[in-house]
Design a protein around this nucleic acid. Structure first.
Length: 427
RNA sequence: GGAGAGAUGGCCGAGUUGGUCUAAGGCGCUCGACUCGAAAUCGAGUAGACGGGUAAAACCGUCUCGUGAGUUCGAAUCUCACUCUCUCCGCCA
């Protein structure tokens, strides 16, 4: 959520920022409502001031044995007026809230301006895409032939965009999860969290999924509960409605969770394999940081995510998203894209964002810079560390051999119980 | 699912015959005194949001005692609904 006071003070600047994100003329209504709100507020507070002092006077008169009837009647009339203005104020504030909750974050000045992903800027590359001396297969063929991924039976259980992992497939997925968590907790200083996979609407509003993106989520029937679309939601909301100590910052959290997405509007994209699923596994990184350090933390977090791909030997590149391609809550985002032979291009496997105080304001997460200071909003960051299913796909495709077997990356061998090659097991 | 108890400031906790509650007290924290320094001790200060005000402050007002509504001239205190927590019982991985 954007700061109402800040919008009031710099409407042109905010308008420009929103235009970079292809949103035009969003502020006119806000500014009108905001001004009306203040007008009514001043008036109603004056009336309340009168009521408060008059009520005290009534109490005093009664004690002194005087008759307060006349004054009581007057205050009653003022009370009616107050009620009317309060109602009006409440509906205006509701309107304002609705507008503010629907506006995306403003892009950081370093973010390139553009309509869509074609304006994204490549920042760096790591590794060389492998040259195959045979025709490489896609992971959806490899997985089925190795009998470790089963899309048909997954459809029987749940429908399209679900996957059953079997045998070494399930084992590999689990190995990747544990490997990611170990690297981030042991080497990068994150605290592991195992959060609930269902959260309430407050959390979803706090991180920005609600109210605008309700369609993208799975809601639990008959309850105000949602399946988490990413661990960013529970992790960021852990400190919702809290005032933190500056000495406790920055806070680093990591969590493995399944992620549930309705993927409304993505029909026909990435239909094959595990790339785009209604349920997928992800290890997430979340940071809560002081405002002046958040951009350093974003760089570090991106490196943390890159690190696991380096250890796995998977070629990738880092891309700075342009204004039109960024998510709703982000001020700046780096995508990490892993090389996928089946796509013959780099494919997103992680997204690392600084949301500045956008989520902190919605979720009311503050800190006290020093004991004497007023509370300030923290900055929140989140990044995939990284998507597990896509990592599995990248491993299958990048480590495949001509006979259809797949080498296990060296760092994963201990997590695979010493197994170095995944090959078809005869049943 | 049944029965009961409860929710107060950064934390703990008092306060319900409605009216100096502008919420006692403690802890924590900040500043000061004492000290070579620290601890201990003593003194002072210490909630947030919104609006006005100011160059910035000071300052003024409104709201907030789980959330929402209601009664009243006036609500932490009375009424209703909801949410959450705890205890006991039942069921259960």
């Amino acid at each position: 959520m954007l700061d109402a006071k800040m919008i009031r003070a710099n409407p042109e600047k905010v308008e420009k920022g929103l235009e970079k994100r292809n949103i035009k003329g969003a502020l006119k209504e806000f500014l009108e409502l905001d001004e009306e709100r203040r007008k009514i507020l001043i008036k109603v507070e004056e009336l309340k001031n009168f009521r408060n002092s008059a009520s005290k006077e009534v109490g005093k008169m009664k004690k002194e044995g005087k008759d307060p009837q006349e004054l009581m009647e007057k205050v009653r009339q003022v009370g009616d007026e107050i009620k009317e203005l309060d109602d009006k104020l409440a509906s205006i504030e509701e309107e304002i809230e609705k507008i503010l909750l629907g506006l995306p974050n403003l892009p950081h000045e370093s973010v390139p301006i553009g309509e869509d992903e074609t304006s994204n800027v490549e920042v760096r590359r790591w590794g060389e895409p492998r040259k195959f001396d045979f025709e490489p297969k896609a992971h959806w063929d490899l997985g089925v032939e190795l009998d470790i991924l089963d899309f048909e039976r997954a459809a029987k259980l749940s429908g399209a965009r679900f996957t059953v992992y079997k045998g070494m497939g399930a084992r590999l997925e689990r190995a990747i999860i544990n490997f990611f968590l170990d690297v981030h907790t042991r080497e990068h200083g994150y605290t592991e969290i195992l959060p609930p996979f269902m959260v309430n609407a407050h959390c979803m509003t706090g991180t920005g999924q609600l109210p605008k993106f309700a369609e993208d989520m799975f809601k639990v029937e008959g309850r105000e509960m949602y399946l988490v679309p990413t661990a960013e939601v529970p992790l960021t909301n852990l400190h919702r409605e809290e005032i933190l100590d500056a000495k406790d910052l920055p806070i680093y959290f990591t969590a493995y969770t399944p992620c549930f997405r309705a993927e409304a509007g993505s029909h026909g994209r990435d239909t094959r394999g595990v790339i785009r699923q209604h349920q997928f596994n992800k290890v997430e990184l979340v940071k809560i940081a002081e405002p002046d350090k958040s951009y350093d933390e974003l760089e570090k977090m991106t490196r943390d995510a890159e690190r696991v791909l380096q250890l796995l030997g998977l070629p990738y590149r880092v891309v700075l998203l342009c204004t039109g391609d960024m998510g709703f809550s982000a001020a700046k985002t780096y995508d990490i894209e892993v090389w996928l032979p089946s796509y013959n291009e780099y494919k997103e496997i992680s997204s690392c964002s600084n949301c500045e105080d956008f989520q902190a304001r919605r979720a009311n997460i503050r800190y006290r810079p020093s004991p004497k200071d007023k509370p300030r909003y923290v900055h929140t960051l989140n990044g995939s560390g990284v998507a597990v299913g896509r990592t599995l796909a990248a491993i299958l495709e990048n480590y495949q051999q001509e006979d259809g077997s797949v080498l296990v990356p060296e760092v994963l061998v201990p997590y695979m119980g010493g197994i170095k090659v995944i090959k078809r097991e005869e049943m």
